[in-house]
Write a protein that binds this DNA or RNA. Structure first.
Lengths: 110, 110
DNA sequence: ACGTTAATTAACGAATCAGCTAATTAATGC
DNA sequence: GCATTAATTAGCTGATTCGTTAATTAACGT
């Protein structure tokens, strides 16, 4: 089973996040093409792809000696769904959100 | 500035993910209440809260000696928006998604 | 069968992360 | 001012992560 934590972990690395973004922008790509544009050895990228695969974020299709990768839409959905999951939270947030618009720009944290 | 990677990193830890979920379910809570239900020392939790804060995921409100934490709706939005960002991907995915419904249950990875 | 191409697994080192206890900062109440 | 309560920062340790090179697996073309 692929957990939400696995997905967040997979996306918490700059290399892996850009692989996912590239696959979303360009569609299915072979491992070779992914390595080619990433300033990194093939083995290193291979492990990144494995992490993404085991998190259920990407799908691997074998064609001869090539491994073709693509993003799984269900995985993206799972993430989006999680953020929207908590109805009570969103209902309660509506007022504050609208009230404080432009008053608390993201960044007044720490 | 808080990046998407910071947010994913923050949510990639089981402790931090459940803190966020609890704050979404119960609303604003003081650090003490959060520590109380987490089998973990106060300092450890304090560092987790700092990670969440620096990622822009939670907001800290000071009231006397207490620190009250709550989830930032904008941060949740930022994550949801990212998953939906790539229109081309979603357009292209629609066919496959509908065609393979129930044929490829999430899990035929690796 | 042999060499080539595509990609992965194995083995190792440097850096980061998550936990603990001890020490510190800050506000409240007498 | 002093003790108490609330939470954080400091310093340390064990485990995990990310990258490298070397070795291995698998399919294709001749």
């Amino acid at each position: 089973m692929t957990t939400l934590i696995q997905k967040f972990t997979a996306l918490s690395d700059a290399t892996r996040l850009s692989v996912v973004e590239r696959l979303m922008a360009e569609g299915e790509l072979p491992a070779g093409a992914i390595v080619a544009q990433a300033d990194m050895s093939a083995p290193a990228m291979s492990r990144h792809l494995k992490v993404l695969r085991e998190a259920g974020l990407i799908h691997q299709r074998v064609e001869g000696t090539k491994r073709l990768y693509s993003v799984r839409p269900e995985a993206m959905r799972a993430i989006a769904d999680w953020t929207m999951d908590h109805k009570t939270f969103w209902d309660a947030s509506l007022d504050r959100l609208e009230a404080h618009l432009a008053l608390s720009p993201e960044g007044d944290d720490t």
